[in-house]
Amino acid sequence: MAFAPQDPRIPDPSDPVVQEARVDYVPTPISVTRARQHATRLIADWGHPALADDTALIVSELATNAMRHGHVPGRLFRVQLTLTKTRLRIAVSDPRSERLPRPRRPSPRDAHGRGLLIVRALADRWGVRERTVGKEIWVELDLTAPRPKTC
């Protein structure tokens, strides 16, 4: 896993996009569930069911953060999945940019604050990109990397 500050949107001609999907969601708890389910279904349909569990967890954590911390009344958050020949890119964007996310070290008694630690542990690369309006948190999973077994 590495934090990569460069912009991963720059196309790599040797690694073309194979599949792509994006959905905008209302920032509510049911939207987090729907985003997770949609992402899991897409990854399986795209032929990578071994990535489904990690994808579900990453989307769930990032969508929850967008709902809780990136919420602006009347604005949506977006989940975008991009599959290339070598990697899956998961990006969640929201309309707030004044508070960029950073992993923190919660105490054992803290009920929250572990989401980005989980994302960081699962990602091969991840980063935060400021947008004209808001921010995007992106994660990349290599298709060739062996995935650790989850319980």
Rank of each mutant, 00 (worst) to 15 (best):
P27K: 08
L76Q: 13
T55N: 04
A66E: 07
R22I: 07
R68Y: 11
P103Y: 10
P29C: 10
R87L: 12
V92F: 02
Y25G: 01
A21R: 11
L76E: 13
T82K: 11
N65P: 08
D24M: 10
R34I: 08
D45N: 13
A35W: 05
P27T: 06
R22L: 04
I43F: 02
G47L: 08
P103H: 12
Q19S: 08
G74S: 09
D54M: 07
T40L: 02
R36I: 13
L51S: 04
R36F: 03
V92T: 04
L76D: 13
D12P: 01
H71A: 09
T84D: 10
V72R: 08
L88D: 01
A52M: 02
L62W: 01
H48C: 12
T64R: 14
Q80M: 15
Q80A: 15
T84A: 03
I30D: 15
A52C: 05
P103K: 14
T28H: 02
L88I: 11
R102T: 11
P103A: 15
P27Y: 10
I58F: 01
S97F: 10
H48M: 02
T28R: 11
P16D: 12
S97L: 13
L100F: 07
R89M: 14
R36V: 12
V18H: 06
R36Y: 02
A56Q: 12
W46A: 05
T86V: 07
A52V: 03
F77Y: 15
A50H: 09
S60A: 12
N65G: 01
H71V: 06
T64F: 05
I43K: 06
L83H: 03
L57D: 09
S31P: 09
R78H: 00
D94Q: 08
L88C: 10
D24P: 04
R22E: 14
D24Y: 02
M67K: 00
Q37W: 05
A35D: 03
L62E: 07
H71D: 15
G70V: 11
S97G: 15
L62D: 01
R41F: 15
I30V: 13
R87T: 06
A63Q: 04
L100R: 13
G47F: 04
V72G: 08
Y25N: 05
R102K: 13
L51N: 06
R75Y: 06
R36D: 01
